[in-house]
């Protein structure tokens, strides 16, 4: 009878995955080994910290991250910068605050409680600066694309010359993995785009992996806590199920019928 559960689980899983797979392009996405996948998956701190660097130095000039605050950078389960580092990072940004006594807005260095500074004041401004395309907010991007992290990783590395016969408008680029293959973002990562401290070589692939890992964390900041709690919860449920199973056997043994 446990099959009931197994079958039903597999059925929904199948239904869920079929239409997800379907929604993807036929192109096979690039795969890499993500440390956060699996039952015990955790983030690679180094990768998250490097990913933050790539985000700030490359992506942040166009892409906002409006649901993140600087304090998140030092929180458990994230890049885990020290409080001092996070404070320094926050202070390196100019934040608009106010109004002050004179009713004017003013600039001040960022604090931990501030949200990430946005590159543009509003959507229209962002569109105007990017040829009409709005660079999407990156806070939950990794959950907002089917294919998730693999898709983002693939798009970052999927820039190619257009196949013969394909002509592209000005400001449009060819990307093997992007839906419709047309992307308005020029290739963001080249080998050595950023300079990593600590000896990691800043190859295209490395940066793509780091920044995608970072995006997974921004989309799912409690992923590690979730995995940890899940393991405990399921282990607990299994133990209780076993106890209840034997209790049930005992109770039903009072009458001659089988369970």
């Amino acid at each position: 009878m446990k099959n009931i559960f197994k079958i039903s689980y597999l059925t929904i899983l199948l239904l869920a995955t079929t239409h997800q797979v379907k929604a993807e392009e036929k192109v096979e996405l690039l795969k890499t080994d993500w440390s956060f996948k699996g039952l015990f998956g955790t983030f690679d701190r180094g990768s998250l910290q490097r990913g933050y660097q790539v985000y700030t130095e490359v992506c942040a000039s166009c892409h906002s991250m409006k649901y993140l605050s600087y304090r998140n950078l030092s929180e458990k389960g994230g890049p885990e910068f020290s409080i001092e580092q996070a404070k320094a990072i926050a202070a390196s940004f100019e934040v608009t605050d106010g109004p002050n006594e004179d009713g004017e807005m003013f600039q001040r260095p960022g604090k931990l409680s501030d949200k990430f500074v946005m590159p543009y004041g509003n959507v229209k401004e962002a569109q105007a600066a990017n040829g009409g395309a709005y660079p999407p907010d990156m806070s939950v991007l990794a959950k907002a694309r089917s294919g998730g992290v693999d898709y983002i990783y693939s798009v970052l590395l999927g820039y190619e010359d257009p196949p013969s016969g394909v002509t592209l408008d000005d400001g449009v680029y060819y990307n093997k993995y992007m839906y419709g293959n047309n992307i308005k973002m020029s290739q963001p990562l080249y080998d050595g785009s950023v300079e990593y401290s600590g000896g990691t070589e800043a190859t295209k692939e490395q940066m793509a992996k780091d920044v995608t890992t970072f995006l997974m964390w921004t989309a799912e900041p409690h992923l590690e806590a979730r995995h940890k709690m899940g393991f405990k919860a399921i282990l607990y449920l299994i133990i209780l199920t076993i106890l209840v199973y034997f209790s049930m056997k005992k109770i039903w043994s009072r009458i001659e019928s089988e369970v």
């Binding site: 607990y236 209780l240 106890l243 209840v244 034997f246 209790s247 005992k250």
Partner: peptide, 8 residues
Amino acid sequence: LFTASYAV
């Protein structure tokens, strides 16, 4: 068994 089930 019952006590353990209740407790857990």
